[in-house]
Amino acid sequence: MAPPEITFLEALRQGLWEEMERDESVFILGEDVGLYGGAFKVTDGFAKRFGEARVIDTPISEAAIVGAAAGAAHMGMRPVAEMQFIDFISCAYDMLTNYVATARYRAGLSTPIVVRGPCGGYVRGGPFHSQNPEAAFFHTPGLKIVYPSTARDAKGLIKSSIRDPDPVLYLEHKWLYRRIKEQLPEGEEVLTPIGEARLAREGKDLSIVTYGATVWKSLEAAQLLEKEDQLSVEVLDLRTLLPLDDAAIMRSVQKTNKVLIVHEDTRTGGLAGEITARINEQAFEFLDGPIMRVTAHDVPLPYAPTLEDFVLPQTEDIVKAARWLANY
């Protein structure tokens, strides 16, 4: 019998659960993660199974959550810190960038923490419940950043992040939580390697390099373009943002010669800029058109649906941009 379909959120939950079962040094800390089971119910039932000592409800103190995780990690623990919404990670920015990220390089300290939390828009969350904070941390050597888009990778990456010897920022898009469903094999250890992109769709005319929720919007666009324009669009899901999988990006560029980078984060200083530069450095001669970006507009994310829809990249934008680039 085929295993049941599970949601992105359930896959993440399973991954956390399995790691808690596997390794006693793994523990969770965050706001409302215990009895309540987390604002999005990612840790539902964990306190009951593993006890409140390993599923710690904390005060509203992100700097303390991350800092305490770091200290515990130095001592051999494997803490998983939850930000109730990733928007609040800014409160721990100092701790993450100054302390956690530099600890190994500066002082030879092992800090294998995972900081995870719901990110992203398309949910009418307004300016403080919709953010994509990757760019701020992407610029911080010493942190790793993963950003799954499938249920399998939600599970595979949380497990790999917990086992990784370095601090990992695990970004989970709340728009995917219950929208994405997948059958995961029962009894199989799902581990997604950190640093490897995933070819979400093969194509030959144009590559879309993306991650997070826009993977799905890009796939939708690719289907449409195939149907209406007979265009064969490749979609590369980065999965890990730091370190970037340069090889996978270049492979795709060398194959299709045209690249559209799509991300939900705002344009200026976003990851697309860095990816563009790397393609330019490593595969310039394979380009048959300019590297183009489809991103959010450079404004804080507004609340009204009409405004949010305008600001964020939509499937239709990807279709139009890809079409333009294909005709270049």
């Binding site: 010669n257 310039f284 001669e285 394979f286 380009l287 048959d288 058109g289 270049y328």
Partner: peptide, 8 residues
Amino acid sequence: KSTPLVRK
């Protein structure tokens, strides 16, 4: 009127 790939 051309791109790096085309020139290559």
